[in-house]
């Protein structure tokens, strides 16, 4: 019965019913985990912060006010704040571990695969040093495959602002990538 409930009805029920909260958890746990994983770079911290996100949501869900935004926007906000605190408290910058990441390679040639993995590691390293809002945008766009509109709702910006931020992020990524290539080339020579 509760499967057919709309999200807003489910949230209202979740204020008093643990089972309804459980359904919200099932719906969003992977999304939040993915977001935290790409922001922290390791599974242990991703699990820890995902758990903290849902505990915090559980403690405050009775005060949640529906403002027409998806419930996930609220969860992402909690996760975002927790990740920001995590970075601030520990002041650590870890390189994404790609051991557990599913590296997608369509080409079987080992050299090409190695090159692709190398590029992926490098790209993740660059992303991890970008400003928080740009990291968030890339994760929501590519990992969660959200539309600009959905991203705008979650990040509390307009759709146009998101498009503009996306464009600037890509140019900045490209610029850093090229800059690193030139730096490496001059080091070699």
């Amino acid at each position: 019965m509760s499967q057919t409930l709309s999200e807003s009805d489910l949230v209202i029920r979740a204020k008093e019913d643990p089972e309804a909260f459980g359904q919200l958890y099932t719906r969003y746990v992977e999304k939040i985990y993915n977001y935290v994983y790409y922001r922290t770079g390791n599974r242990q911290d991703a699990e820890d912060l995902t758990a903290k996100t849902f505990y915090q949501a559980l403690r405050h869900v009775h005060r949640y006010v529906d403002r027409g935004l998806p419930f996930s926007a609220w969860l992402y906000r909690i996760a975002h704040n927790l990740v920001a605190n995590w970075h601030r408290d520990r002041s650590r910058r870890q390189v994404i571990s790609l051991d557990t990441l599913a590296l997608v390679s369509e080409r079987p040639h080992p050299e090409t695969k190695l090159q692709l993995e190398d590029d992926q590691r490098r790209l993740l390293r660059i992303i991890r040093y970008m400003p928080e809002d740009r990291q968030q945008l890339l994760i929501l766009k590519f990992v969660e495959q959200m539309t600009n509109r959905e991203i705008a709702q979650i990040m509390g910006r307009t759709e146009g602002a998101i498009k503009s931020l996306y464009h600037r992020t890509l140019l900045s990524l490209r610029g850093i990538w090229d800059g690193e290539e030139e730096g490496e080339a001059s080091e070699e020579s």
Partner: peptide, 9 residues
């Protein structure tokens, strides 16, 4: 190809 969804345990 890089930012692919991962699955929690």
């Amino acid at each position: 190809r890089t930012l692919v969804p991962v699955h929690p345990r």
